[in-house]
Design a protein around this nucleic acid. Structure first.
Lengths: 203, 203
DNA sequence: TGTACATCAGTGAACGCGCGTTCACTGATGTAC
DNA sequence: TGTACATCAGTGAACGCGCGTTCACTGATGTAC
């Protein structure tokens, strides 16, 4: 056994959180087990309790970590929509083939929605905070949140639902259909109701 | 032990499927264990293998069963939308408080979306068939599928995503917001693009 | 310079439990003779 | 009418395994004297 330099403990701690946040999205809360997570980090399960009080504490930290990038990603997509004048690009990128495949590093809301309600309070709390931050970032997209109406939750629900459905039904042509409809639906949702819409801006 | 009348075996068989389809939605595929399911039926685990080859066979049958009502329910909602002239009623009913609470007997798509991709092929297949049938029923709603555009997948994704999110973030006022946005979004999605829309028909 | 001890991240055996699956069995009834 | 046997849904002990959690330990280094 080596003597550990300063900061070693903290590095191990966040390595555990990183591994957990990926395993969780890929294989669910249950299979993100203490043993599996520690093995992914390259350690044995016994050392776990020097870092976390219990599995729930790890899952809570991992959920928070998983949501770290979501608001940033959606903010970037909202900016792209603004720049291109097409909200459809949000769905186009969020539902891109590569993202559908990358469960472990992808949107935690889509990866965990239907499992979260069974988790303990601390995990649910992080999920909710992360999802609300994500919605807030998406709301910056042009047309989604206006003086007359807010459709940012509906847009998020459609995007998350589409991604989860695409993964649940892995079929290239079906996925293309779902993606295209999401793009078109987002455009329709964000279009101002009264002047007849510029339905298809250049992608 | 009693001598069993004709049809007893078949009744036990479907009681197992019913119990599994409910436990599955409420507590997930993993916790819909052979032991838990048989206990729910009032039997011991040992008798299970007289009815199913393995757990996967049960989950596949339970998934199919869970989707039995979905297309009927959506067809009924589509008819209500037609009759009332408001597609919003679909979201209003699908996302009603009672439905959000009734996970065990509710929409299997919403209850299982983010878990299905980890299940074995037979289970995934039933999920896909059930979801496609459900989408087909929803497509009968006025305005969702027209000559110019089809938004039935987008609408289903938004409804399923909203329901799953509402359960993941149990908070009455947040749930109201999500429901209201879903109603409004559905109306906007189904509205014909050109003549300025009758945005708020009487609910 | 040498010895004794403290530190502390990580190890691995052990615990009780639930899982999916197997299998010898039970016991109430029906059928054969 | 009475005996022997077949039927068959369901029982419950047992298997190997992975789970979350506990705990006595290891062993490389730092510190005290």
């Amino acid at each position: 056994m080596v003597r550990y330099d300063a900061g070693h403990r903290e590095r191990t701690h966040s390595a555990i959180i990183d591994a957990a946040s990926q395993l969780m999205r890929e294989r669910g809360f249950t299979e993100a087990s203490v043993g599996n997570v520690m093995k992914a980090v390259g350690l044995t399960h016994g050392g776990f309790y020097a870092h976390f009080a219990d599995k729930t504490a790890m899952l809570a930290a991992a959920t928070e970590k998983a949501f770290d990038d979501s608001p940033k990603n959606f903010a970037a997509l909202a900016r792209m929509a603004q720049a291109s004048g097409d909200v459809g690009v949000i769905a186009k990128h969020y539902l891109a083939e590569a993202r559908v495949g990358a469960v472990a590093s992808g949107c935690p809301a889509a990866a965990l929605v239907s499992e979260v309600h069974r988790q303990e309070a601390p995990v649910q709390a992080r999920f909710r905070n992360g999802t609300e931050d994500t919605r807030r970032a998406l709301a910056a997209a042009p047309g989604l949140t206006t003086a007359e109406a807010d459709h940012s939750w509906a847009a998020l629900a459609m995007l998350v639902g589409s991604l989860a459905l695409m993964r649940a039904m892995p079929d290239a042509s079906l996925n293309d259909t779902i993606r295209e409809q999401a793009i078109s639906a987002l455009r329709k949702l964000a279009a101002t109701p009264n002047p007849p819409q510029p339905e298809s801006p250049p992608a």
